[in-house]
Design a protein around this nucleic acid. Structure first.
Length: 541
DNA sequence: CTAGGGTTAG
């Protein structure tokens, strides 16, 4: 029977099979015998077979069934071992529910299955992937014997939480403890260098990569990504060209994305011409076009996407629609939006934002209503609310903004972020409701949200508009305390003092700017329409 | 049976 089930695991295992298995397990536990002629099965054999069953469920991407199976095993007080737990932890990771992981952790402690290095490493991995950084670090600290894998898990833990400085700290600690580095370590090291824009450190890691001489496709991809992030596209190209032999899609994608982000369109198109461009390459390339407000390059990407038949890929369409929106082409964005068969939360949010950022707040609010009417098929998230709120702010839609801020918490159970409060304060300030502004601020503080620079900016703007001198000075003081060297903030504070007629302060701040060597950044509203000086001819896909 | 590279919204 078990053999039979194992066979099914590899072919057509689904929930029905799992409940079937659970039935068999319960039967076995009650009668200590299997229903069929599988009489000689010992308990250990049984455990190892359930383990491989759970493991293959996880491998097949069915963590729910894996969890149900595990849960019924525990309920039946069946024996499990450390191997069972590592598989189940992976299931928890896939489900992204840390409470389940914590439950498993507790059971591991109870059965003593948590002591080994492998077990602890999978705990570190689970906690970090479920977003509990503190727990992950705690488990790592408790670890007696730490191998490279354990250190690497900790490293990716910090990288996942976007803490590259801490990641470099881990690398240094590995050096101190004389841990032998693996190719995984170098990969993470390159990621840290990329986000820290640490060119020199990255070059040193490049040297280590060459010495290691293994897994060159993965490490070359990481190198390309690193060099592109620090603006050295030529080095990225060198890495790409010097790798002989087989290159995979990810490597091409990384290079295309790197070239476009650095406005090296000619090279990007040439690389895309080497292989049939895939949807991911085009998606990341489009982000570069949006970042550079390059409508010309974006349109080229669009035509490639159409020719390759990628018009049903939601992610790609989202990137296209966003590119058009950022370049001010709202109607193009709209027709793209209308054509997306399976709109996700990002499609809706991008389109709402497209209206909002182009001064069409009324349409943004209407689209948000339409989204909500769709019967909860796609739920708005905190970014959606931010887009609606900022649209209301830009178009002076006070009542709509208030309604939206209420909905956020009351209908959708979301906690407003500082950014939401900043938009809300902005809306109230523009409407002349200065007392409402400060009530919102106090509510925020009461909720335990610490004011960010963005909050002080919003408060300061509201005070400037409403001539709230005293509290405005307070906001100004806090803002400069938090960000003393940002010229745009100093200009903002200086504008506030100008608005209330304190010219002495204005002069003071001007000299502060001078002594700190800060200059007012110039605004820019150019978009590239014609693609002058670009290599349009190289697009021969 | 634990760790790694490219992928859309603020």
């Amino acid at each position: 029977m078990i053999q039979n089930l194992r066979h099914k695991t590899c072919s057509t295992l689904n929930l029905n099979h799992v409940s079937n298995i659970i039935g068999i397990i319960n039967h076995y536990l009650h009668h200590k015998t299997f229903t069929t002629n599988f009489s000689s099965s010992s308990l250990t054999q049984y455990i190892s077979q359930t383990n491989s069953l759970i493991a293959s469920l996880v491998r097949r991407g069915d963590p729910v069934s894996a969890w149900i199976l595990f849960h019924s095993l525990r309920r039946a007080r069946a024996d499990v071992d450390a191997y069972t737990f590592t598989s189940v932890l992976r299931a928890c990771t896939l489900l992204h529910i840390s409470q389940l992981g914590t439950q498993v952790h507790a059971q591991m402690v109870k059965t003593g299955a948590d002591s080994g290095t492998v077990a602890k490493t999978s705990l570190v991995d689970m906690y970090s992937k479920c977003g509990s950084l503190d727990e992950a670090v705690k488990v790592f600290d408790e670890m007696g014997l730490r191998d490279v894998v354990a250190w690497n898990a900790l490293l990716s833990c910090f990288l996942r939480c976007d803490l590259p400085v801490e990641a470099v700290g881990v690398l240094r600690a590995m050096g101190r403890e004389n841990v032998e580095l693996s190719e995984f370590t170098l990969c993470s090291a390159l990621k840290s260098c990329a986000s820290l824009k640490a060119l020199e450190l990255g070059r040193q890691v490049h040297g280590l990569v060459v010495c290691m001489g293994r897994d060159m496709v993965v490490l070359s991809t990481a190198l390309i990504d690193f060099y592109s992030s620090v603006g050295c596209v030529d080095d990225a190209l060198k890495v790409f060209c010097s790798l002989k032999g087989w290159k995979d899609d990810m490597m091409y994608n990384s290079l295309v994305s790197g070239c476009v982000r650095n406005r090296r369109y000619g090279e990007a198109f040439r690389v895309m011409g080497l292989v049939r461009p895939n949807a991911v390459a085009l998606t990341s390339a489009l982000v570069g076009c949006s970042e550079n407000l390059d409508l010309w390059a974006g349109k080229q990407m669009h035509s490639v996407a159409v020719r390759q038949g990628f018009t049903r890929e939601t992610q790609l369409c989202n990137a296209l629609l966003d590119m058009y929106a950022k370049c001010g082409k709202v109607s193009l964005a709209q027709s793209l939006f209308d054509g997306i068969c399976e709109k996700d939360v990002i499609s809706w949010t991008c389109m709402i934002d497209a209206y909002g950022r182009n001064g069409r707040g009324r349409e943004a609010v209407l689209l948000f209503q339409e989204m909500r009417k769709e019967g909860g098929k796609v739920l708005p998230n905190s970014v959606t609310f931010l887009s609606v709120l900022s649209a209301c702010g830009h178009s002076g839609l006070v009542e709509e903004g208030k309604k939206c801020f209420k909905l956020l918490r009351e209908k959708y159970g979301l906690e407003p972020d500082p950014e939401h409060y900043a938009c809300y304060i902005d809306i109230l300030g523009r409407a002349g409701n200065i007392e409402g502004v400060w009530t919102a601020y106090h509510n925020m503080v009461e909720q335990g949200t610490r004011p960010t620079a963005g909050i002080w900016v919003a408060l300061l703007n509201a005070c400037s508009l409403n001539h709230d001198v005293e509290r405005g000075e307070l906001a100004a003081k806090h803002l400069l305390q938090l960000e003393p060297n940002k010229s745009s903030y100093i200009v903002l504070v200086s504008n506030f003092y100008a608005a209330i007629g304190r010219w002495d302060r204005v002069d003071e701040l001007r000299s502060v700017m001078r002594t700190k060597g800060l200059v007012k950044e110039a605004g820019n509203s150019w978009i590239n329409v014609l693609g002058l000086n670009q290599h349009a001819r190289s697009l021969s896909v």
